[in-house]
Design a protein around this nucleic acid. Structure first.
Lengths: 193, 193
DNA sequence: GTCTATACGACGATAGAC
DNA sequence: GTCTATCGTCGTATAGAC
């Protein structure tokens, strides 16, 4: 079971990195804090992540992408229209934001803004994370009759809108911007207010 | 002219802080780097900003708000519709992004995400910055016949959309997400694709 | 108003024992 | 695989001369 335990330590480190990035950003998150938060042995960090902080950040971004995809899969089935599905997703995000007392922001956004110009590895990870949200949504819109180019454009705008609304909501400590984003999504995706 | 020189030093420090926050985030920007970038005497920092980094960050956020308002005032007059005005603004942002080789992100977004949960002072400064963009846009929409609540909702969504599109554009090193945002703004604001 | 010097902690990362 | 100890650097902030 040595591998299993090692894998769990690695996973806990990644989860802690993700949680702390959401709260304090990438540069604001120290590796000492990460191992402490994970309850992991400090000496194990560079065993599991020989490339150091950058590799850990990359895994955290990938985990964030997977977690939000899972949230979408959990919350959207049964929605009447694509727009309704997206609005359910936005409501779920608003719930997370309120539960955390507006301390959780999007880790992909903040890593993009802090490290996009300095680490090609992290910038690519963030670009892939955004694509992992845009592409399935675009495919869903195509399945509902949109042309592929229009679907891609709309899906990109919807992801951008949600991303921005999370930030404005956090700044204002209110879910109002997310609510307005949900309204706008109805117009953009379903064509009805 | 002692005051004038002091004021210029203070202004240069604020401008440098703003520039560096856009590139490396708040935590990633060291005060040593700021004074060096500003060509300012190191000993002068805590004379002009007795409250230290937090005060400097606050001024940088306020400067960012003013600079983007000035950009809007420069670029939007003469537009046929409110949506066309916003689209001109988005094109200007895309130009800045390309000229900087995708190194400049929104300082308000990144400060919100990094420090919103830790510094009430910075969180408030960011909320005020967002409001300073939302409120005039909402007023403009009211002047074009919208009801006040609808105008506020649409203006908030538009600012969120632009904010998010800047981030996604930076991650993808492409202005495409901003272009799609401009299309979506046409639908949301003017009601025509 | 600005200077130099420095306090003091946290940072990421590494070495070598076990 | 994990431990402790530590390296060198950089961070913010302060002190006291001028």
């Amino acid at each position: 079971m040595a591998d299993t335990k090692g894998a769990r330590t690695s996973a806990r480190l990644t989860e802690s990195m993700l949680d702390l990035i959401q709260r304090h950003g990438y540069s604001g998150t120290g590796l000492n804090t990460v191992v402490q938060h994970a309850g992991a042995p400090k000496g194990s960090l560079y065993f599991h992540f020989p490339d150091g902080k950058e590799a850990l950040g990359e895994k955290a971004v990938e985990l964030a992408a997977a977690q939000l995809a899972a949230l979408a899969a959990e919350v959207t089935p049964g929605a009447a229209t694509p727009g309704a599905a997206v609005r359910r997703f936005i409501e779920a995000l608003a719930g997370i934001l309120v539960e955390s007392d507006y301390e959780l922001g999007c880790p992909v956004s903040v890593v993009t803004l802090e490290m996009g110009g300095q680490s090609e590895r992290l910038r690519t990870a963030c670009a892939n994370a955004f694509a992992s949200w845009i592409d399935p949504l675009a495919a869903h819109l195509v399945a509902h009759g949109r042309s592929a180019p229009a679907a891609h454009a709309t899906a990109t705008a919807v992801v951008s809108l949600i991303e921005g609304a999370v930030i404005v909501s956090r700044a204002q400590r209110s879910t109002q911007p997310l609510d307005y984003a949900a309204q706008a999504v109805g117009i953009l995706v379903d064509g009805t207010p």
